[in-house]
Design a protein around this nucleic acid. Structure first.
Lengths: 167, 167
DNA sequence: TGATTCGGTGGACAATATGCTCAGTCTTCG
DNA sequence: CGAAGACTGAGCATATTGTCCACCGAATCA
């Protein structure tokens, strides 16, 4: 399957200050609706609706959660695992197998010493070993290196980026 | 500031099949409301409302987007930067400075050879150099190693985990 | 056993939000 | 100047929300 970005070609959307404020508002209080947004931003309801539709259409807004905290489900341990794979078969079959492991939250192919980087979670350090074993067992995976995330002083966020992009 | 997990202590929520289906449904079609959810899942509206409230209260659901795609805003390049820092001052001031850089999307302190791992985005490879320079300029950062994400065969997801946790 | 608690059901109500349409205004730009 | 695009403010029918309530069944426990 082609990636979304490729399908969109080089289309890049520029957002203005109102877009940025709108996203920031929704990020802060996601349960408010279009009408409430228009009141807070002092614009007409149709404007908010048009902006949201446009950002959704252009792919800037890809969805609206819900955001899940794995730690609250008992998956306290986060680790980043670098994979070295046998090159003959390519990345795709490896990625397909990794996608079958629920604890694998994301997978990237990367430059540098490793071939792939994945973020995984586990219920404990001992459980992490189990997850890593699952990964090592994937056909084509030769070796792995893991680093455990001890703390996350800056959790994943895009708001500052939106503000920077939107003036 | 204490992390949320520490503040919650060891509270871990278990979710059942209905919770999992509810989250999956909302993830698939986030714009539908509580009433529509109750219809799709063949339960009473109050039940859906109660489940959502409980998961929000327990921290399983931390929010409801909007999810932003940096690539659609022109930040095509994603990289993972490992930081080596001077240990004398500790991680906190470094993390605080990193948090000021919009292109830094998340920061973890890690085990292993490096001290911190951050995910950054940039508008191009040349722009990535600028971002890395910003990071290197942070007081306490001694050295960085970067790997660029070439492709993301498995984008960040938590649904499989939710299904695994919820039966 | 009997009482209590908890989670779910199904219904009601007023208040509010939504999707949709329309006419009018303002700015930009060729 | 004229056209196009974006925003406004309004209206309307319909749907959804927040908030009650009474009732039911299962699990818990004295």
């Amino acid at each position: 399957m082609l990636s979304l970005r490729f399908m969109q070609g080089e289309i890049v959307m520029t957002i203005d200050h109102l877009d940025a404020r709108l996203v920031a508002l929704l990020a802060a209080e996601p349960r408010i609706g279009v009408l409430e947004c228009s009141r807070r931003l002092n614009v007409a309801r149709g404007t908010v609706q048009a902006r949201l539709d446009r950002m959704a259409e252009k792919g800037v807004i890809t969805g609206y959660g819900p955001d899940i905290d794995p730690a609250a489900l008992g998956f306290d341990v986060t680790a980043f695992v670098t994979l070295h794979i046998r090159q003959v078969a390519g990345h795709v079959p490896v990625a397909d197998q990794l996608a079958l492991i629920p604890e694998v939250l994301e997978v990237h192919t990367i430059t540098g010493g490793g071939d792939m980087l994945c973020r995984v979670v586990a219920r404990s350090n001992a459980d992490l070993q189990r997850v890593i074993d699952l990964i090592v067992d994937v056909q084509g995976v030769v070796r792995t290196e893991s680093v455990i995330a001890l703390d996350t002083p800056v959790p994943y966020r895009t708001l500052p980026l939106v503000r920077a992009a939107g003036g």
